[in-house]
Each structure stands twice: as C-alpha cells, then as structure tokens.
C-alpha cells in the first residue's frame, strides 16, 4: 500500500472510531435523561433529551456512512462516495429540525399553562447533564482536531455539534439551578421554557450551518474564496511557464477537493518539458491545499 493510502486509511479508521464512541456515549445517556424528564417535568430537560436523541441518530448515521465510504471505494462511483458524507450531514440537519418543532410546541404549551418543575428530578437531571457536559467538551476538542487534519464535512459538522451541545448543557445547568433555587419568586416558572428556547436557538444555528454547507457541496459549488486565492497565487508564481490561462474549475467531494486547471503552452515546447511544468505546479498546489487533487490539462480551447 502507498504511504499516502495508508495515512488515508488510518484517518478513516480514526474517524470511524470517534463517530462510534460518539454514538455509544449519546446512547448511554438517553435512558437517564428520559428518567430525569419524567421526574422533573422540565421543558429544558426535554429539549436536552431531544437534542441528545438527534445527536445519537446523527452519530449512528455518520458512523454507517463513514464505514460505507471506507469499504466501498470501488470503480462504480469515482466521486459519489464523498458525497455520501454530505448527504449524511443533510439527514443530521433534518433530525435537528424535527427536534426544533417538538421543542417549539412544548414551549408554546408551557407559556400558556406555566407549571412548576420538581426538585428531585431536577437534581438528578443536573447530575446527568454535568457528566454529559464534560464528555461533550472532550469530543468537541478531539473532533475539531480530526476535522483540521482531514477536512471532512462529517467531522466538521460533528465538532460543531459537540460545541453546541457543551454550550447548551451549560444553559440547561444554569436554567435548572435558577428554577430550583429561586422557585418562590413569581415568574420563575418561565425560566424553564426560556432556557429551552435558547437551546432551540443552538439547534437552529447548527441546522442552518450544516444545510448551507452540505447543499453547496452537493451542488458542486466551487471551492471557497481563500482556496481560490491560493490556486491563483501558485499560477502567478509560474506566470512565465505557460502561454495562456484558459480557466479553473473546482469542487468538493467529501473530504477531497478536486481542482482542474486549463493551461496553454508554447508550441515550441516539448511534451516532456510541458509535463515537468505541469508536475511542478500540481505539486505546489497540492502541498498548499491539503486534501486536493489537482489536474492540469494542456489545451488551446478556452474553458467555458
């Protein structure tokens, strides 16, 4: 196996392992969180439970998707397997939106008919949420590190998910403590539904970010501006080595970036010289943009 293939395989295994542990941790907390919701009568804990169910389903879907990508690299879909990651991210966003609708309904109901939450269930819930907070912070940093190395849409959506989870858990903890400590103050019944609105805000923001990024990539949107400038910088560095510049096209498929550059070379140049130049430019761009696959086509036809 080529060293670069070995590194890629190890990265996929690491991603697979991380997503599997993420799923297990989410699943482990579902039962105690459900108990806490029933005992406490708290909407903020219900919102947190729905968020956890979304996370659990998302982790499972992402894990299965990564396994399929790692196993299924055959000749049938040269680019399509990368898009499976984007599709999984969209499923994840769909789960988030369903959770939002449920939270919205519960909050509306609780504002119309305010209710007290129950102390015992709240303290039990606090214990669970605090433990989950510690785990979320760990996965947030761990997945962000992996996403930086591999540039994978799944890992990016997951570390953002864990960040939102950790902050949301902080809001849950604060909201529950205020509700219990100041329970005799009038109007305190509204703290619980207000806390769940804040959590809903986090879910909405995550869903929007995931949908906009994944749809753009699924529709083969060009690479972001910062990367386009890197490509142009390398072409500028080799300005005198080609005769004409006919265009660039780029897209993303999973964690792979595909860049096609169309250049015209001097008629007097030998094919061997042209290949040497192409190789130099290709290597420079691939070094500057991790995860990129650069193809430089010598052509006289302008790219449309």
């Amino acid at each position: 196996m080529h060293p670069s293939e070995l590194i890629e395989t190890n990265l996929y295994r690491e991603k697979e392992r991380t997503l599997f542990y993420g799923f297990i941790w989410s699943a482990v907390f579902l039962l105690p969180k459900t108990v806490a919701v029933v005992l406490s009568n708290s909407v903020v804990l219900l919102a947190d439970l729905l968020k956890s169910i979304s996370k659990c389903i998302a982790s499972l879907a992402s894990w299965l998707s990564i396994r399929r990508v790692a196993k299924g690299k055959d000749f049938s879909y040269n680019f399509g397997y990368g898009k499976l990651e984007n599709l999984t991210s969209l499923v994840l966003a769909g789960v988030l939106i369903i959770s939002l609708l449920v939270i919205g309904y519960e909050v509306y109901h609780r504002f119309l008919h305010p209710e007290h939450i129950h102390d015992f269930g709240v303290w039990f819930g606090l214990l669970i949420v605090a433990a989950k907070f510690v785990i979320d912070v760990y996965f947030w940093h761990h997945d962000r590190h992996l996403a930086k190395i591999d540039n994978s849409p799944i890992m990016v959506s997951h570390w953002k998910f864990y960040r939102a989870d950790a902050i949301a858990n902080g809001v849950v903890i604060l909201s529950l403590i205020i509700s219990v400590v100041f329970k005799n103050i009038s109007g305190i019944k509204y703290v619980d539904p207000i806390g769940s609105i804040i959590i809903a805000g986090f879910l909405l923001s995550s869903a929007y970010g995931i949908v906009s990024k994944s749809l753009y990539d699924l529709l083969d949107g060009t690479l972001e501006e910062s990367l386009q400038l890197v490509i142009l910088r390398e072409l500028a560095a080799f300005f005198d080595d080609y005769k004409e510049f006919h265009g660039i096209r780029s897209r993303r498929s999973g964690s792979h970036l595909f860049i096609d550059i169309f250049l015209e070379f001097d008629n007097e140049k030998k094919m061997g010289e042209i290949y040497q130049t192409i190789e130099k430019i290709r290597r420079r761009i691939e070094k500057s943009i991790p995860g990129s696959n650069v193809t430089i086509t010598p052509t006289r036809i302008p790219f449309v």
Binding site: E225, Q228, L229, I231, L232, L235, A236, F239, Y242, K243, E244, F245, H246, G247, I248
Partner: peptide, 18 residues
C-alpha cells in the same frame, strides 16, 4: 474584487504577454 475578477486579469495578462 474576488478571485473570479483576478482570474479575468490573469487571462488578459497572458493574452497580452504573447
């Protein structure tokens, strides 16, 4: 100016260089 604008300038510069 975005990278798309820079590309047009690069295209023009190469055409004029010849």
């Amino acid at each position: 100016i975005s990278s798309a604008g820079l590309r047009v300038l690069l295209l023009g510069a190469k055409k004029l260089q010849s």
